[in-house]
Design a protein around this nucleic acid. Structure first.
Lengths: 145, 145
DNA sequence: CTGTGTGCAAAGGGTTTGCAGGTCT
DNA sequence: AGACCTGCAAACCCTTTGCACACAG
């Protein structure tokens, strides 16, 4: 946890930005809720608990900044709000999501699973793949009863 | 083309709706630009060419209606606007998209490609899949030079 | 006459931006 | 002083909604 914060601080400094108290509080919330796919508003409300003076705009600006630095990833599940998650440090692509249509929970699949499919696409369509998004919609193991 | 319009007219009637001139004009535009993934605004502007009196709200309402009837599919590529495409008549899932990061063109892949992957997910995660979304981001064959 | 459908304008929700301070060097 | 950063409010964009009117059954 601490090391990751330090790492992010360095990334900011390298690009000429500071780790202000507001930014630190925002990163802290993201780290504490890493598996939750928070929206900007979610992050804002959570940051406010410990830093009530923070403004929504600052949270948006911080999230945008972290996205630019590729620290986090902005994802969109089609419900009208952007959500954010940490980027895997080394992963070429990010992981996949399982969205439960009953309870709304978003689980993750770490495996890639798509290597064969990507080969087919690159060959058959002459399309140079940079990234992919794969989402499954269905019923999660918790809601099957 | 004509038959498809008739078909849609019947689907509307079955559900208690009428094929008004505005709805017909909207469907017409969708049919004429089937491979273009139009946004609501795009549809509106195109409909306006032949039916200048139409209102944007009507287009939105028509698109929502057609989505409910499962005639079209609302898709979201993460750029902040909803886009629409016809549903494959028999396909269990819809197809996949190749989005070019240079020219922005969206091509389609008709094949499923994911049957094996789905089996893995259903078994390993005990997740009952209803639908999936797969998008590749990269460089299309036209932009590779 | 009742219900559905329409156009317009207003409201709505999420996100971005302009601006006047504020902070750190 | 200068550059960066912040909070607030206003602006923005896409989409939805309220309302009065139009039209068909």
């Amino acid at each position: 946890m601490k090391e990751r914060l330090e790492r992010i601080k360095e990334q900011l400094h390298t690009s000429g930005y500071k780790l202000t108290p507001q930014r630190e509080a925002t990163v802290h919330v993201l780290l504490e809720n890493e598996e939750d796919h928070l929206s900007a508003e979610d992050v804002y409300l959570l940051v406010k608990v410990k830093s009530p003076e923070i403004g929504l705009a600052t949270v948006y600006r911080t999230l945008e900044l972290l996205s630019e630095l590729k620290v986090i990833h902005k994802i969109n599940f089609g419900d009208g709000v952007a959500r954010f998650e940490f980027r895997a440090e080394n992963a070429e692509h990010h992981h996949h999501h399982l969205i439960c249509i009953q309870c709304g929970t978003v689980d993750e699949i770490e495996e890639d699973l798509l290597e064969e499919v990507e080969q087919v696409v690159e060959q058959d369509f002459n399309f140079k793949i940079v990234d992919h998004r794969l989402t499954f919609h269905g019923t999660c193991h918790r809601c099957q009863s």
